[in-house]
Amino acid sequence: MEAEVLFEQRGAIGLITLNRPKALNALTLGMCLAMRDALKAWAVDPAVTAVVVRGAGEKAFCAGGDIRFLHDSGKAGDGGALQFWADEYRLNTLIKRYPKPYIALVDGIVMGGGVGVSAHGSHWVATEKTLFAMPETGIGLFPDVGGTYFLPRLPGKVGIYLGLTGARLKAADCVHAGIASHFVPSAALDGLVERLAAGEAVDAALAAVATDAGPAPIDANRAAIDRLFAGDSVEAILAALDADGSDFGKAQAATLRTKSPTSMKFTLRQLQEGARLDFEDCMRLEYRLTQAIVTGHDFYEGVRAVIIDKDQAPRWQPAALEEVTPAIVNAAFATPPQGDLDLAA
């Protein structure tokens, strides 16, 4: 069997290829640990001046974490899900603090865990095949892998909008929102890798192949997003969307009503708090929330409805926003009895 993630030292770069194309390169625990070890080694290797990460196949950079494993492990109570999240969040932190350029070539779908191994690097390259989303509220989760930090730092209320609705963005929107640092046509990526391998400076190599991503569709709704997603509660946001009367407002209200009420309340508070926290504290906060997730109901129900049975009809508990009380939310955000995650482990 071929390895789930491939590592190559090609000239001046360390090259990582996520190698589960049939699973849209979804991350496993083994992949997270292997990436961590390689990144640590390359960080102190003077022959490696930059790291490039890409996905195998034609469809995806990385469509997320191994959700089915997290579901099964969480249900079994064997500790595997929490171990996965702990090591994934340590990897996200290593990438955020990496001492060398880290260039993610996001040529295809990038969601959830794939965002965590791309968005925190120094350079995020979109192509015409890029499709970005953080769809976690639709499976009873929350936008983790550092979403606590990067989503509230996007322009205006774009991060709140993306985190609550799970809206999908293509390349131009990713550039507009500040998620992507560059747009490079898919056909030019191999040439970019060879430039970097030859030792060309990262910014110069990117400037040689980057082009204009074109107009961003999200721009037409930016004023509406900033106005309608400004509420300090999910109820206030939903009320603003209902009162707006526009097609955009109606569509977003309908979308929110399909999401887990618990997840939406966790997500809004998560992003409100994340705007004031440093990266490490954001990751510790996310780990607290995962512990509420694995002992709760909605994650298992969301995965059942979307991934296992695929009936797209989750039965959330609680089923209404007003039933997700402040006590429920506060308990999820409290420091767990065993303390916060050690990100240096």
Rank of each mutant, 00 (worst) to 15 (best):
S260I: 02
T127W: 03
S181L: 12
I225G: 02
G163Y: 03
F248C: 07
D66A: 14
M111A: 12
K170P: 00
Q83V: 11
P46N: 06
A197Y: 01
G116E: 06
L256Y: 10
K75M: 11
D342N: 15
Q83W: 00
S260G: 07
Y300C: 07
K259A: 14
E8P: 02
H123N: 09
D66W: 06
H176I: 00
T255R: 15
N19E: 07
I328S: 05
L18P: 10
P185K: 10
E4T: 12
A3S: 15
L321Q: 12
F132D: 02
K259S: 07
S233K: 04
G245Y: 12
K265T: 05
A171I: 07
L189V: 06
A334N: 08
N330G: 12
E286R: 00
K22Y: 09
A81Q: 06
T325G: 10
G191Q: 04
R68E: 13
L277F: 09
K170M: 13
P217H: 11
V306M: 12
H182T: 11
I16G: 01
Q338W: 06
D66K: 02
E235I: 13
L70M: 13
I109N: 01
Y161I: 00
G138K: 02
N19Q: 11
R284N: 02
D244N: 11
I139L: 14
G11V: 12
G30Q: 07
G30H: 03
Q312P: 00
L206P: 01
T255K: 13
A188E: 09
G199K: 10
T93C: 11
L39D: 03
N330M: 01
D190C: 02
D242V: 11
L169A: 10
P318V: 15
A201Q: 11
H123D: 15
I237N: 03
I160M: 14
N92M: 03
E323Q: 15
G114T: 05
A81L: 02
E8G: 06
W316D: 07
R227H: 08
E273C: 10
D87S: 10
A34W: 03
L189M: 08
T325D: 11
V48P: 00
A332F: 02
V5H: 06
D226W: 06
L151K: 05
Y161N: 02
Q270M: 15
D342G: 12
Y98S: 07
V329R: 04
L141E: 04
F61Q: 05
L228R: 04
F248Q: 06
G116H: 04
A177G: 01
L169S: 03
T17S: 11
L268H: 13
D212L: 06
A171P: 06
I67Q: 01
G114N: 12
A76M: 05
K96F: 14
A208T: 05
D212A: 13
A305F: 12
K96Q: 14
G191H: 00
F61H: 07
E273N: 05
T255Q: 13
F183M: 09
A41N: 11
G163L: 09
I13A: 04
A220W: 03
M134R: 05
N330F: 01
A254I: 08
R36N: 07
P261D: 08
L151T: 06
P143Y: 01
M35V: 08
V184R: 00
H182I: 09
A86M: 02
D342H: 09
I13E: 01
D242F: 08
V125K: 00
G199D: 09
